[in-house]
Nucleic acid binder design. Structure first.
Lengths: 122, 122
DNA sequence: CTTGCTGCAAAGGTTTTGCATTGTT
DNA sequence: AACAATGCAAAACCTTTGCAGCAAG
């Protein structure tokens, strides 16, 4: 039977992702982790990020044709600035109610708002 | 000054997208339009889909690393089955209220729900 | 006529994958 | 000792782009 093993690489990737409030790409995670672990490979980073997100240990978004990862899996939405690309977390004070058809079994909700951030609003 | 021209290709792409209720990839649009217009090129399809979505004539989603296009730009959400990949439109009867921070200028909202469709729910 | 659009094919960027080796359990 | 995970590099995949010829206005 298959088992999942602990490795330094996994710990470093997860540690980094949880230490930032940004939503880095695999490439960015790779560069960051590489500083402490120069031999880590990009493939390992991709493989683990993908595995973590499949196991719902981290979150994944897709923006402008790239995958971005999120160390925070609490319920929240995202704001994406269409000009500069910045991504902010959105935490809502009031619960959002939606009347959802019962014919599906829900696993996750993604609420993304696009627009302009303060800086980019001319 | 630059102007935008009407072409058969644009009409065919838009016509196809509006004739279906699916959310096809550029590749799928290409195959479909190619039946009526065998010389159309994939590059043209990509170029026009991108232009249409920039001008908000069509919608664009990103699912599983691919862009998908939506001929329907009315306000609605999407359901994505994580197993079979099917995408359904979600129309809500009641307006959804969210308490959104005023510091952004909003341009669009994307509500995507992931889970299992009836068929894939074992 | 002017110049935007197309078709073609090549290039670009991101992500995945095969395989020999290394490291966990 | 078994075999999952890694590093490396090649391959796969999707999308963008340069350019010469075509076609819309």
């Amino acid at each position: 039977m298959s088992d999942i093993r602990q490795t330094k690489q996994k710990a470093a990737i997860l540690g980094y992702l949880r230490s930032v409030k940004t939503h880095p790409t695999a490439e960015i995670v790779y560069s960051a982790v590489k500083k402490e672990m120069p031999n880590i490979s990009l493939g390992t980073v991709y493989r683990n990020l993908e595995e973590f997100s499949k196991n719902e240990i981290i979150g994944k978004l897709e923006v402008a044709g790239r995958k971005r990862f999120d160390g925070d899996i609490s319920v929240h939405g995202h704001f994406i600035c269409e000009k500069c690309g910045r991504i902010d977390d959105l935490f809502f004070k009031k619960k959002i109610k939606i009347d959802f058809p019962k014919k599906y079994s829900i696993n996750g909700i993604d609420l993304t708002i696009k627009g302009r951030c303060k800086k980019c609003e001319k």
